[in-house]
Computed example of a mutant assay.
Amino acid sequence: MGHEDLPTLELAFPGPERDRGVEAILSGSKTALTGLLEIYEHAGEAVPQAGQRFSVLDSQGRPAVTIELVDVRVVPMKEIDDDYVRAEGRGYSDVAQWRKAHQDFFRSEGVSEFLGHTPVIDDETLVVAERFRVVEPV
């Protein structure tokens, strides 16, 4: 199955944050990503499942890499651990730093605009914790 036949995945919003994420996947340092369950629900999208493949898009909307999900869990934020945080590949020093970055993003103007409100982010907030492997760079 070619890149054009796969569902697409966009990290964050186009720009430096997405570019750093794509770079981290390509370098092998990023093998996990986290989504807010509420975003999936609001968009009417099913939570991804292990075995699914996605074409990850760059900031220009072009396929950059194909990934395959190897583990997907819906968990409260309080269950994210240091091992998962390291797999995010963004250089977080600990769970607290990971959490602050995700709280800021999930409460950002873009996410709030999409949802129609600013979400509550706390220990019980459900996130989609996905681990993946690179299938092939473009």
Rank of each mutant, 00 (worst) to 15 (best):
V74Q: 10
H42F: 12
Y40G: 02
L36P: 10
F54E: 03
P76V: 02
G35I: 03
S27N: 09
L69W: 11
S59F: 00
T66S: 15
E88P: 10
A24S: 09
S55I: 05
G61Q: 04
K30A: 06
Y84F: 15
D83K: 14
E38I: 06
S59H: 01
G35P: 05
D83E: 15
I80D: 06
L69G: 09
Y40N: 07
K78F: 00
K78W: 01
G61E: 02
A46K: 11
L69D: 06
V72G: 11
A24W: 00
P63D: 11
V47H: 14
R90A: 14
E79A: 11
V56C: 10
L57D: 09
L69T: 04
D71S: 15
V47A: 12
L36N: 03
Y84K: 02
A32P: 06
E68M: 09
V85T: 15
A46D: 15
D71A: 13
V65R: 07
A32Y: 13
I80G: 01
S59Y: 00
I67D: 02
V72L: 04
R53E: 15
I39Y: 10
L36H: 02
G89K: 11
D58P: 11
G51F: 10
E88I: 10
M77F: 13
D81W: 04
D81Y: 03
K78Q: 04
R53H: 06
V85L: 10
G35D: 07
E45V: 00
Y92C: 07
L37D: 02
I25Q: 05
A32Q: 12
R86C: 09
Y92W: 10
E41Q: 13
F54N: 02
D71C: 08
S93Y: 04
E45S: 01
L69V: 09
R90K: 12
A43Y: 00
S29H: 11
L36C: 05
E68H: 05
V56K: 05
L33G: 12
D82K: 07
D71P: 01
S29E: 14
I67L: 15
L36R: 03
D58I: 12
R53N: 02
M77D: 09
D81N: 13
G35F: 11
Y92N: 00
D81S: 07
E45H: 10
Y84C: 00
P63M: 11
V75R: 13
G35N: 07
G35R: 11
S93D: 13
L57K: 07
E79H: 01
V75L: 14
V74R: 08
I25T: 02
G44H: 07
A87K: 15
V75A: 04
V72K: 08
S27C: 03
A46E: 14
V65S: 14
L36S: 05
Y40F: 15
R86M: 10
E88S: 12
T66I: 14
Q52M: 14
